[in-house]
Computed example of a mutant assay.
Amino acid sequence: MNLESNMKDIVSTLLTDGTVEKMVEKHFEKCIENALNDLFSSYGDITKVVKEKVKSVMVPYLEARDYSDFIVKLDDVLVEVLKNSATANKDMLENFKDLMIVDKKEEIKASELFGIWKEYVANNVDTDDLEVDFDDRPSYEYVDIRLEVEEDENRSWSSFKYATLIFECEKDEKMNFSIRLSRYVDDRKESWDVRYDKKREISSLRYLNSFEILLMKMDQDGTKIILDTTYENDEVQPEAEPEATYG
């Protein structure tokens, strides 16, 4: 009984001298602090709201900014880095440099792009299965290449027309490219917007070739294609020369 009585006296004293209120207040403050930490954490509701507000302000500002001076400095930095980079990283850095340096072209003719691709094929076509011509000096046989434009079936209700610009090499499928095109039906200039679908991850940059880089730049720069031709065929002689053999 004495123990029970003493406990009642202690509780009564704590309730009357404000100790319990202080303890409750302390834990309540801690509860609020924990709740605020959760709200302001990486995945908290308040953080999400603040992030969206900052994004709505910063993105238009960054898009409107002129990066010309920055690009010039970036070019110098990348050139210096390339001089001191291991071979494994050079392709990636070269491709990154080519993508970042501004050389915007508003439009390009399909025939001009065909000429660029023709040169690319001559320098990169796989010669393993090509025959060797021994007239005059040993050289690989010519390879057939062509340009085609395949227009999609038009919908009477659509405001857009769609087509695919195709570059095809008969001897090496790795040289082939297809580019999606679109334009307003009422566009009097008949210039087509370019869409080249390709992964843009940094890790994939080392595996891109020069023609892919060009198509990606055209896509991101909004370069338009003028279809001054819808079909071309030609022959290309590989730049590589067969190794000399001695009987």
Rank of each mutant, 00 (worst) to 15 (best):
E4P: 02
S5L: 09
S5H: 11
V11Y: 11
L14F: 14
G18Q: 09
K22W: 01
M23Y: 13
V24F: 13
K26F: 14
K30P: 07
F40Y: 12
K48S: 08
V50D: 01
S56V: 01
Y61R: 08
A64N: 13
I71T: 04
V72H: 06
V81F: 08
A86F: 06
A88I: 10
E94Y: 10
E94I: 13
K97D: 08
K105N: 06
E107S: 13
I108D: 01
E112A: 14
N123A: 15
N124H: 15
V125F: 07
D129N: 15
D133S: 11
S139Y: 04
D144F: 04
R146S: 13
V149A: 03
V149D: 03
N154V: 07
S158H: 02
F160M: 12
Y162F: 11
D172A: 01
S182Q: 10
R183F: 02
V185A: 14
S191N: 15
R195P: 01
Y196M: 05
K198G: 01
I202W: 13
S203Y: 09
S203M: 07
L205M: 15
S210P: 00
I213V: 15
M216C: 11
D219I: 02
G222D: 02
I226Q: 09
N233Y: 08
E235W: 04
E235L: 13
E239L: 12
P242R: 06
E243H: 09
